Amino acid sequence: MRIDAHQHFWKFDPVRDAWIDESMQVIRKDFLPSDLEPILKKNNVDGCIAVQADQSEAETKFLLDMAQNNSFIKGVVGWVDLMSDSVEDRLAHFSKDKNLKGIRHIVQAEPNDFMLRSDFQNGISKLRQFNLTYDILVFAEQLPAAIELVEKFPEQPFVLDHIAKPKISEGLDKKWKAHIQELAKYENVSCKLSGMVTETKDFKWNGEAFTPFLDVVFNSFGEDRLLYGSDWPVCLLSSPYESVIKIIEDYVPKEYHTRIFYQNTVNFYSLDENL
């Protein structure tokens, strides 16, 4: 069994999805479950986690509806306004759907100290009672705030998306490495092996470029706190799905494949074992 722990769906809207600019023609279109399912089957992947790409409750409902109608979508990481006074009510509302497994905010678009805001942290404090995880989406320079956040909430499960988006083509950055090692000391934090191919110059890469970064996260988090994710369809800016999964297949020792491609995702997102 294998699960892709990180991918997206959308019906492309040039206003709402303004981040997908003219240079990204390959993903300026709809990407729906019917597009992904055959790709997963071709790559022997049995299911996926659909992650929000827009900061709206409409997005959360859209993804939950997709999961309701497509059994290969095993869980949803949605969005609610964590800074709202009514955050608890909104979490209660969406948590009625068993497919909601976690929440994410696009922190990479926020100031570096955003996660230290008291209203944001109030929202984070409400997640545990609904058995919801939190996906940390940050740039490398935002890792110090992420470290402060996870230290403050030791019972809250967190997962770092895209290994914090280091600039792969520029080689290993000592600050990024030190911050990853520090973040990994907190046992409530996992890390997705995802999003690396699009953190390359002009979306060009060779497989060896990722090895130093993978060495850091593998040595820091270990085989029990790493999850494979494709970041499809964003990955298509650089690479087809087959190339993305092969990077992780080739790097991870065979004896850890079941954990990183399946069991760790099941454990982290509290998925039904009877997939």
Rank of each mutant, 00 (worst) to 15 (best):
E148C: 03
S169T: 12
E151I: 04
S194W: 13
F213M: 01
T211I: 15
F153D: 10
Q121A: 06
M115H: 07
I136L: 03
K174C: 11
A109K: 07
K175Q: 08
I147T: 10
L116Y: 06
T133W: 01
S169N: 03
N188A: 03
K177A: 02
W176N: 08
K167D: 07
L172Y: 04
M196R: 00
N112F: 15
E223H: 09
G207C: 08
M196A: 01
D215R: 11
M196Q: 01
P154S: 07
I124Q: 00
H162Y: 04
E110N: 05
G123H: 03
I147K: 01
K201N: 13
P111L: 02
H162C: 02
N99A: 10
W205A: 12
M115N: 07
M196C: 01
P111I: 04
N206A: 14
A109T: 10
N131H: 07
D215I: 13
D202Q: 09
D224G: 11
K101Q: 06
V216W: 15
D113P: 10
S190I: 10
Q108A: 05
D161Y: 00
I180C: 09
N112E: 13
L172R: 06
S169K: 01
K167G: 13
A140K: 13
E110H: 09
K126N: 08
D119M: 00
E182C: 08
N99T: 09
P157G: 04
A140D: 02
N206T: 05
W176C: 04
I106Y: 00
N219T: 14
Y134M: 07
S190W: 12
F114N: 02
H162N: 02
E141K: 15
K165N: 11
L100G: 14
F158G: 01
V216H: 07
K165T: 03
T211E: 15
F203D: 15
D215M: 14
N112W: 05
R225V: 14
F218E: 06
K192L: 14
S190P: 08
P111Y: 11
I180A: 00
S125N: 07
T198Q: 10
F203Q: 05
L226Y: 08
L132M: 07
D215L: 09
I163D: 07
D224T: 13
F221Q: 08
T198S: 08
A109L: 11
C191P: 04
E141A: 15
D215H: 11
V197D: 03
A209E: 15
Y186E: 11
T200I: 11
E182P: 07
K101W: 05
L172F: 12
L183S: 08
A178Y: 06
S220M: 14
T211K: 14
L172M: 06
P166S: 05
P144R: 04
F221K: 07
I180T: 04
G123N: 05
S194A: 10
N99F: 12
N99G: 13
L137Q: 00
M115R: 01
V107I: 14
N131I: 13
R104C: 00
Q142A: 08
N206G: 11
H179P: 12
P212R: 11
K152C: 09
H162G: 00
S169C: 09
F210P: 08
Q142W: 06
K152L: 09
W176L: 07
K201G: 14
I124K: 03
S220R: 09
K185C: 13
Q121D: 04
D224F: 05
W205P: 10
A145D: 00
K175M: 12
E208M: 08
D161L: 02
V217L: 08
A178S: 15
E182V: 01
D119N: 05
E155I: 05
L183Y: 15
